[in-house]
């Protein structure tokens, strides 16, 4: 506050104002890796804001249909709302069609819903993972306003800049000469997800506490928890 302002009587000064910003960064990181007959999707379990840890036990992967899951991180208020609206749309679909929506259809629906809010976006990074009509694992990556890309592996959220280069190198065989990308197995996917999160938790305060790893196959879903550092 300038001296001039300080010296004027209080009724001449501006009132103290609280500025309102409708978004918050609540951290969180997600990774998904697809194989020929499975897909793995994982997130850390820390919910934070700034230097505060809200929860050490908040998974960010949501089940949508028996063969599809979505991981969301970013503004937690938007994550909750987007998920609620999406679940409602899926329920309406299943009531109308007496069937579950296919993974490709859910993927397109999510993109459309995100773009619908183009000028007041859901501040959310999403990955959608599922089994497609041919029984193969697929991963879709989104930006907050609905741009969509079909991939075989992807990372998103707070630690994306730590994890994505690692996956590009280890799964995509990128940035190396004369290297063939490995065949993806459940064991390799699980190990890569584990290593990626451990490394990210070392460097990023918004990632930590634990990992929740979900595996989807045509036979159903399984889940596993792994501990991460909690500081």
């Amino acid at each position: 506050m300038s001296l001039e302002v300080m010296s004027s009587p209080d009724y001449m000064r501006d009132p103290r104002k609280h500025h309102f910003y409708p978004y918050a960064d609540n951290g969180g990181t997600s990774v998904a890796i697809a194989g020929d007959d499975f897909v793995m999707i994982a997130s850390d379990t820390r919910l934070s804001r700034g230097f505060n840890i809200f929860s050490r036990d908040q998974g960010k992967v949501f089940g949508l249909t028996p063969t599809t899951m979505m991981a969301s991180s970013g503004c937690w208020a938007d994550v909750l709302t987007l998920n609620k609206v999406l679940q409602a749309r899926l329920t309406m679909y299943s009531h109308e069609h007496h069937d579950q929506m296919s993974t490709t259809a859910v993927a397109q629906l999510l993109s459309t819903m995100l773009y619908w809010r183009r000028f007041f976006p859901y501040y959310v990074s999403n990955i959608l993972a599922g089994i497609d009509e041919e029984g193969k694992g697929v991963v879709y990556h989104y930006d907050p306003v609905g741009h969509m890309e079909k991939l075989t592996f992807s990372a998103t959220g707070a630690s994306v800049s730590q994890i994505q280069p690692l996956l590009d190198n280890q799964i995509g065989g990128l940035n190396m000469l004369d290297v063939q990308p490995p065949k993806m197995t459940k064991e390799l996917a699980r190990q890569l997800i584990h290593d990626a999160f451990v490394s990210a938790a070392e460097r990023d305060i918004n990632t930590g506490d634990g990992i929740l790893i979900h595996t989807i196959t045509k036979d159903g879903k399984t889940e596993e928890t792994v501990k991460l550092r909690r500081d």
Binding site: Y23, N26, N52, F54, S55, C75, W76
Partner: peptide, 25 residues
Amino acid sequence: GYVDKIGTAFEAKEVATGFGLHLAV
């Protein structure tokens, strides 16, 4: 459970508002 003015909501075994988030939790 906790909710704030922008709709951030979560359940936890301990919650606090304001300075309590820094000191009490």
